[in-house]
Design a protein around this nucleic acid. Structure first.
Lengths: 208, 208
DNA sequence: CGTTAAGTTGGTCAAGTGACCAAGTCAAGC
DNA sequence: GCTTGACTTGGTCACTTGACCAACTTAACG
């Protein structure tokens, strides 16, 4: 058996603490994530917190810049079906992201809370922008892959297309967090899919 | 002169307190809006707070159910130009809402913070849904008026159209709160306008 | 006028909060 | 083995928070 060492490197402790913090925040909200609650969750003395982090803000930074975004990569994107229409394929993509949101609502709630927090603290004010950019990059890459595999070209810039996708997903997501009506959310999402598909056209056969 | 009465009815005091709370929240964030800070802002003793409100949650309720939504009505919607195309008119509408957001970012930030809070507190959990519904109703009414004035019919249900509008605005809005890039936000908004305009068609001349 | 109820206030309470420190414990390197 | 530095911990500090109360002041009403 792996002997439980009494001493653990500060780096590992930091990871344990951020993980515990995320767990507490998901369960009880960001306001309930006091240093004590976090350390209890992680099974360590409260003093350990300030040995690993200079301040609580440092935890927020660590959380926003690494831990949260990992969960987004987890969504396994479906592959494109070339025989289906553009609308069907876009819908498939949006729904893939959507099911990730729906099945892990609390994570997205916490993310929303963290971004709100960061928008107030001057020292963290850069993180929301950074985080949005990360979303955008992911959507852009996905869009490009999607267009190539489906044999489509976009009638507007890829970046602008991605911006639409992110805004639509974000809008539907935050609405759903409020009303929790799955049917409406999916319906709206599908409508967006149809609209977005209208911004594509078949790859021209051959030119210049 | 209107003599400053030493005694003020509890109802008026409640209004003063919610107004002061909103001011503090806009300035320093929802977390900084302690009962003390609010009462100081309102120029009264802290004890007054618990004479007017049974608890702090009661203030949150009052805030979410009345004060916030007032600010949304303030936006004077432009009238439709029948000579212009549908896309131009939709764009005009979206931009009208947008300028309201842009010129009063902190209010929308506070709204976002309040909704986040309410989503955690079981006693307030109904308010976000209610608040979303209010948005939706407003968008629906506006859409109907818009379609009538512009001589258009929607190719999807009015409600579903409104849902798209709200999601788009919300998505663009929350993205902008993160990156604060006006150009990108407007660009995305205009792209949405074009897409939404595609869901309309001219009123049929005569049938049945 | 005097009574009564509504409004007002300073002071106080218990329960937290983030931060920190000094005294300990452990594991590795000489 | 023993020194050294990384890690651990209980205890404590100064401060804030929501809540509350008892005593006071004002205004309305008969």
């Amino acid at each position: 058996m792996t002997a439980t060492r009494k001493h653990i490197s500060a780096d590992v402790r930091r990871e344990q603490l951020t993980a515990a913090a995320l767990r507490v925040m998901k369960r009880d909200g960001i306001a309930a994530a006091t240093t004590r609650a976090i350390c209890t969750e992680a099974g360590m003395a409260q003093s350990t917190f300030h040995y690993c982090f200079r301040s609580k803000q440092e935890l927020y930074t660590a959380l926003l810049s690494t831990d949260i975004n990992v969960t987004l990569d987890a969504g396994n994107w479906p592959s494109v079906d070339p025989t289906a229409g553009a609308a069907d394929n876009v819908r498939l993509l949006l729904r893939a992201y959507w099911s990730a949101v729906e099945s892990d609502a609390t994570t997205h709630l916490v993310l929303s809370e963290l971004v709100n927090l960061a928008q107030r603290e001057p020292e963290l004010s850069g993180l929301p922008a950074w985080q949005h950019q990360a979303y955008l990059d992911k959507a852009t890459a996905l869009t490009e892959r999607f267009a190539a595999e489906a044999g489509l070209v976009l009638t507007i810039g890829t970046r602008q297309f991605a911006e639409l996708v992110v805004a639509a997903l974000n809008g539907v997501g935050s609405a759903w967090l409020s009303h929790r009506d799955n049917r409406t959310a999916l319906e709206t999402l599908d409508n967006f899919a149809t609209l977005l598909a209208g911004l594509t056209e078949p790859l021209p056969a051959a030119d210049a």
